[in-house]
Structure formats: structure tokens, C-alpha cells
Amino acid sequence: MTNEPQATSVLYKQTLIAGLWRENPVFRLLLGMCPTLAVTAAVKPALTMGLSVIFVLFCSNIVVSLMRNLLKPHLRILMFTLTISTFVTIADLFLKAFQPRMSEILGPYVPLIIVNCIIICRAEACASKNPLLTSIIDAIGMGIGFTLTLCVLAGIREILSTGAVWEIPILPAAFVPWTAMRMPVGAFLTLGLLLGLVNAITKRKA
């Protein structure tokens, strides 16, 4: 009985870390590909997107976890999407008011968070089965994992397409920008190669 609090804290820590690598939503579960590909032309919009997803994931996991005992099985997806779309509306209005430029760049991809599979997947796989605290920790871990992945992808694409990161030039002026990296092609190729790299690293470890 004495080591029970310790056991739960280890569980929490594992839940938190799982989202970063072992169950990374983009690299491992292949979830939420649309925003991953669409908003990663530069780091700034990618980070904005990541933070919005963390906010929505956090709030929706709390609500879903609180109402998990009231859910009827056949209506649960509908309830999830309604909860999520409410919070996405909040995030969208917030961005429009305080970050108008980012809101313009991200355009319809902010409301598209509603159908981001990560959020529905976490609501279904975690929040609707676990108590409040576990769901919150899971949301934070998954959200941070997603944001980091977006930033890595965006960093690679931005540096190759403009020679800058966070709009600060770091490559010498002689560098010829790869315009293709800013286009859809760059997104698909970079993500494909990164996934291959992640697979190779995992294979070597095992």
C-alpha cells in the first residue's frame, strides 16, 4: 500500500512521455496528417497551430472525461465533435482577435482542428475511459508531442525554402532557396523521409 502513490506518479510520468516519442501522434500513430502537411511551410504558423491544438485537446479532454459516465455509445462521436467544435470556435475567435496575421495564414485550417483525428482519438482512447487527471496529463503530453513534430518539420522546410528560421535569416545569402519545399511537394517528401528516418532509428534501437 505504501508505494501506491509512487506507482501512480510513475504512471502519470509515462503517460506524459508517451506522447513525445513512443506514441508520438504524427510519427507513430499517423494521426492529424492534414494540419501537419498544410501549416508547416514556416515555423511561426506551425507553432500557432500546435498551441491551438494543445488548447483544444486540453479543454476537450477535460470535458469528455467529466461526462464519460453519461455518454451513450452510439452518440459518443457526435458528443465528442460537438465539444471539440465549441472549443475550436473559441480558439478561432481568439486568434482572429489577437493574432489576425496568423489567423489569415492558417485560414480554414484552424476550424479544421475539429476533424483533427488526434483530438477525437484521445477523446475516444483516453478521456472517455480515464479519470480527470490522467486525461489532462495525456492531453498535455500528446499536445506537446504534436507541436514539437510540427516545429521540426516546419523548421526543415523553412530553412530549405527561404534560408531562414522564425523569419531570421541564418544561411548565407549565396544559398539558393528551394522553392519546391514551400509547395505541397516539399511537405509530402519531407514528412515521408522523416518517417523513414524515425523507422530506421527505432529499428536500430530494438
Binding site: 499517423l30 519546391a180 509547395m183 505541397p184 511537394v185 516539399g186 511537405a187 509530402f188 517528401l189 514528412l191 515521408g192 523521409l193 518517417l195 523513414g196 528516418l197 523507422n199 530506421a200 529499428k203
Partner: peptide
Amino acid sequence: ECLKGAPITLITAGLLTLAFM
């Protein structure tokens, strides 16, 4: 080996996009 499955699909999709451009 490490590109099997999703990675090669994404790369193929990238080349398709290039064609559609």
C-alpha cells in the same frame, strides 16, 4: 526496409503532387 508502408506512400504522394502542379 525503413521506408516500407507510410513513408513510401507519402513520397509517392509527393511525386504525384509534383505531376499535378
